[in-house]
Simulated assay, not measured.
Amino acid sequence: MAQPRILILRAPGTNCDVETAHAFQLAGGQPDVLHLNRLLEAPQLVAEYQVLCIPGGFSYGDDIAAGRIFANEIRHHLSEVLQEFRTAGKLLLGICNGFQVLIKSGLLDTDDETGPAASLTWNDSGCFMDRWVGLKAAGDKCVFLSGMNELYLPIAHAEGKFVTRDAAALERLDQAGQLVLRYADVEGSIPPFNPNGAMHDVAGMCDTTGRVFGLMPHPERFVDFTQHPSWTRREVRGEGAGLALFRNAVRYFN
């Protein structure tokens, strides 16, 4: 396959779709941006793509809760077709608001016999925060993080605190290797290293296959060295650390 096709699914309030399409294009993919309503009208369109990405923003104004309305649209109208998409060995990515959508729609395999085991809730500060954070990848399960160790990426969210129903649920997800991205003290980090109070410092998680991945940081906002907050004082040039995540998605189909 010369160029994997990427479907970037937006909704009212999405505001990171153009940057995400640019990142996938730089990585060698062929991105298309599609409004959620178009997919609701013709769910079979998703079969034409190899990667589906839900980008960041404030879908539907984050009414009720961040990502909840978008997630409900998936649960009630697109769950079957997206489960088929995943079963076919394809990739799903949710960035920030997209992570909130994936986890609340059930596509991230957190549910158990008693219901949803994990969610994303208000930051401990109770406020929206926009800053850069240090991150470490954990394990080798996640396709998107293959070969990656430390990252430095921006976040911008109010409801990004990862929580589980209880300690047992947290341990189950951890033992399954699904908690694959953690806030960490890496070079350039400014305290607090866990900015929102997330349990186990979780900044991102994948499903049991490693092919569905959601994260709160924005890799699409650091695909070029000039996007780094101190780029004028750094000797490092070339691509930004976030681009590797998109390259991994494209390479998966090559």
Rank of each mutant, 00 (worst) to 15 (best):
R5F: 06
I8H: 02
A11T: 14
G13P: 06
V18R: 14
H22K: 10
A23Y: 01
A27E: 03
A27W: 00
G28W: 03
V33G: 08
H35K: 05
L39G: 15
L40S: 13
L45V: 05
L45I: 04
V46H: 02
E48T: 03
Q50H: 15
C53G: 12
P55W: 04
G57Y: 00
F58R: 01
Y60V: 11
A66Q: 07
I69D: 00
E73P: 02
R75V: 02
R75S: 07
V81I: 15
V81S: 13
F85S: 08
F85I: 06
R86D: 06
K90V: 05
N97L: 09
S105F: 09
L108Y: 06
T110I: 09
D111E: 13
D111C: 04
T114A: 08
A117N: 02
W122A: 15
W122Y: 10
W122E: 12
N123V: 09
D124S: 12
D124A: 13
C127E: 10
C127D: 09
C127L: 11
M129Q: 15
D130L: 09
L135A: 13
K141T: 06
C142D: 09
M148K: 09
Y152T: 01
L153S: 01
H157Y: 03
A158H: 03
G160N: 03
V163A: 10
T164Y: 07
D166C: 04
D174Y: 07
Q175P: 06
A176I: 02
G177I: 01
L179A: 12
L179S: 10
V180F: 01
R182Y: 04
R182F: 07
F193I: 14
H200N: 14
D201R: 08
G204C: 13
G210S: 07
R211G: 04
V212F: 08
P219V: 01
E220L: 12
R221F: 03
P229M: 03
S230T: 02
R233E: 14
R234G: 00
G240R: 09
A244H: 03
